[in-house]
Design a binder for these strands. Structure first.
Length: 114
DNA sequence: AATTTGACGCAGC
DNA sequence: AGCTGCGCCAAAT
């Protein structure tokens, strides 16, 4: 019979961290991977891709690659969703790239400081 | 079961 | 400063 697909634990961990990203801020896959000690930023990418199927309330549009590029925009239902959402949060995007990326860059470590 | 791909990152050139 | 190659680990074919 149909077997309910189990969600690997680290998927949930990644989703949890992504949900903690403050509006108007962005982060990169490597930062999350390092924070969760996944050992590979690719895992974060995979987890986020699946996140849409697991939880539709994940602000995955705030996760970019280390260059600040919207590398995952093509994976969304609408390629323009990611940019539109980020711009609506006050982030300027030029050629699928975040302007002043370092300025908006957020690190999971921030949640520990508070 | 083996090979390829992937929402990545970094060192080297 | 941009391109190439390699490493990372899991999922898909």
């Amino acid at each position: 019979m149909t077997k309910p697909k189990q969600i690997p634990p680290y998927y949930t961990s990644v989703i949890d961290v992504v949900k903690l990203i403050p509006p108007g801020r962005v982060t990169n896959y490597g930062a999350i991977a390092d924070f969760l000690a996944l050992g590979s930023a690719r895992m974060v990418g995979w987890a986020l891709h699946k996140s849409g199927l697991v939880d539709g309330d994940v602000p995955a549009h705030r996760v970019l690659n280390r260059k600040g590029e919207l590398s995952g925009r093509l994976a969304f239902s609408d390629p323009n969703y990611m940019q539109a959402k980020l711009e609506s949060e006050g982030i300027i995007i030029k050629d699928h790239r975040v302007v002043d990326f370092a300025k908006y860059h957020w690190h999971p470590e921030e949640i520990l400081k508070t």
